[in-house]
């Protein structure tokens, strides 16, 4: 055909696209760097969490200690990496726990419907009305400090929103014609749930899980900062910020700043990736061709 020579490109609505183009590569690079660091660094440089070196305390950032040392002479960079590792572990496991619980509860409530649905959702409302940090503190207080109580605490307090999202999604899918068609075609309840409803909610649930990772990391840090999370000698971002509070007033900024950045940058990167994902699965992006 002879036409293409004359064809011109049209920018659809003149939206600024520059920022959006950079978001994906930047955030994926940040997440990749974080993952590499938390996997590789512990393999290369072991950390003795008990070791202190009081002759070397509160050094400003230098070549030997790029992030400086803290008030008992520990290398801030190394502890940041290890702290991030713990935080990521807690964040990911807790987010997964919360998502599994939330998806199960939400999907069950939505699929069964009726009185069960109403009762379950009232319970969810009751739990949601209590600030979940408070609830989390209550849960960790029942255990000895460690990684797992924090995971349990964060997991058990964060499934509520996922349950709501998944239930709403199931309810909207359940009234679709294609579910009716499946029922009419002889599909059992189980088959409708597993084959038609669940695949429909998984993208939403997955998105909720990814969005929850940064949330869970902050939650872990908050618990540790309050002295209720990990044991105080463990390198965790919350513990480090808590330990460094005193030195900040003396003008030693590095033991606070770097753990703070380690908390902010990865969580922002993960949240940004989740945002890209959300755009991908939202219906208005699905069709590139309007026929």
């Amino acid at each position: 055909m002879s036409i293409p020579a004359a064809l011109r490109r049209r920018t659809p609505r003149g939206k600024p696209t520059a920022g959006r183009g950079l978001r994906l590569p930047l955030s994926s690079c940040a997440v990749a760097a974080v993952l590499l660091a938390v996997v590789l660094v512990p393999l290369l440089v072991p950390l003795d969490e008990q070791a202190v070196d009081l002759t070397d305390k509160l050094h400003a950032p230098s070549l030997a200690h790029p992030f400086g040392t803290d008030d008992v002479g520990r290398d801030v960079l190394l502890r940041c990496v290890y702290g991030l590792r713990v935080s990521l572990l807690v964040g990911v496991v807790a987010a997964l726990t919360a998502t599994v619980i939330g998806t199960a509860v939400g999907a069950a409530a939505g699929a069964v419907g009726g009185r069960t649905d109403r009762m379950v959702m009232r319970v969810v409302d009751v739990f949601s009305s209590v600030p979940h940090l408070l609830l989390g503190i209550f849960i960790v207080a029942m255990f000895r400090p460690g990684v797992w109580p924090v995971v349990i605490s964060v997991g058990l307090t964060h499934w509520l929103s996922t349950a709501r999202i998944v239930r709403a999604e199931v309810l909207s899918l359940r009234s679709r014609d294609f579910v009716d068609a499946a029922v009419s075609g002889g599909a059992s309840r189980w088959r409708v749930g597993v084959r038609h409803l669940l695949p429909g909610v998984l993208p939403q649930a997955g998105l909720a899980a990814v969005l929850m990772v940064p949330h869970a990391i902050w939650h872990e840090s908050a618990l540790s900062f309050l002295g209720l999370g990990l044991p105080t000698h463990r390198a965790s971002l919350g513990n480090m910020i808590q330990d460094a509070r005193g030195t900040l007033l003396a003008g030693d900024w590095w033991p606070t700043l770097f753990p703070g950045l380690f908390l902010i940058v990865p969580t922002l990167a993960i949240a940004s990736l989740a945002g890209v994902w959300r755009e991908r699965i939202s219906p208005r992006r699905r069709s590139e061709l309007m026929l």
Partner: peptide
């Protein structure tokens, strides 16, 4: 249930 076959108005919603 399967003795009655159904076709809906909007194929996009029914698939």
């Amino acid at each position: 249930r399967t003795a009655v076959g159904v076709v809906f108005q909007q194929p996009r919603l029914a698939a």
